Computed example of a mutant assay.
Amino acid sequence: MLFRLGLRAGEVAALGLDDIDWRLGEITVWGKGNRRDRMPLPADVGEKIVAYLRNGRPAAAQGRTVFVRAQAPYRALSTGAVTTAVASAGRRAGIGVVHAHRLRHSAATAMLRGGGSLSDIGQALRHVRPLTTAIYAKVDTEALRALARPWPGEAA
């Protein structure tokens, strides 16, 4: 969900069972500033959530959050726990420590490389201001090259 939907660690941690509308294929994301957004739930992500709910979520889980601790007491994951889980997965995969927010940035970079505009990316990541999304412009050096003026005195 961090990469595929570009969610923040806190948004994943806060996702509740009641935030998933299986019939409409949507989720409600509680973002920064208690902002509430409805997003499409891709089938592959929905399938992974179902697999977790059936096979991974302890039957004795407390509360209505989707993701809970793997060890008792089975309470909701914190933002830090989501970040720790991502870091642990990165180490197990042999790529070192990967922070949860890196996956959000990777999602934005993938959208940009796939032809998405900065406006599209800002909408997908639910940025309030376009300047927040502008940091992703620096990763597309080919698009920036077309905007750069030749250095004075050198051949273009």
Score class of each variant (00 low, 15 high):
99 H>T: 10
70 A>M: 05
101 H>R: 06
87 A>Q: 04
69 R>Q: 14
82 V>Q: 13
145 R>F: 02
115 G>Y: 03
129 R>G: 01
46 G>I: 00
94 G>S: 09
119 S>H: 12
54 R>A: 09
68 V>N: 08
93 A>H: 09
35 R>A: 11
22 W>Q: 10
41 L>F: 08
32 K>Y: 11
52 Y>V: 07
20 I>C: 03
28 T>L: 08
35 R>I: 06
36 R>I: 15
150 P>M: 12
146 A>Q: 05
115 G>S: 02
25 G>F: 09
101 H>E: 00
14 A>K: 11
144 L>S: 05
19 D>E: 04
44 D>Y: 05
62 Q>R: 15
13 A>R: 00
136 Y>K: 05
97 V>W: 04
27 I>S: 01
126 R>G: 07
98 V>F: 15
45 V>S: 04
53 L>H: 01
120 D>G: 05
149 R>Y: 01
43 A>T: 09
31 G>M: 08
109 T>L: 01
104 R>M: 08
46 G>D: 04
54 R>N: 00
34 N>H: 14
50 V>H: 12
72 A>S: 15
143 A>E: 05
93 A>T: 12
148 A>S: 13
36 R>G: 09
44 D>K: 08
91 R>W: 00
109 T>D: 02
114 G>T: 06
48 K>W: 09
104 R>S: 12
138 K>Q: 15
36 R>F: 10
20 I>E: 00
29 V>T: 02
19 D>W: 00
12 V>G: 04
127 H>N: 01
6 G>E: 01
29 V>K: 02
24 L>E: 13
46 G>A: 11
66 V>D: 01
143 A>G: 14
59 A>D: 10
13 A>Y: 00
31 G>I: 11
95 I>R: 15
86 V>T: 05
134 A>W: 03
10 G>P: 00
71 Q>F: 12
118 L>W: 02
124 A>E: 07
28 T>I: 11
77 L>A: 08
82 V>D: 04
102 R>C: 06
48 K>C: 10
17 L>S: 06
23 R>H: 14
65 T>N: 07
20 I>T: 00
133 T>I: 08
97 V>K: 15
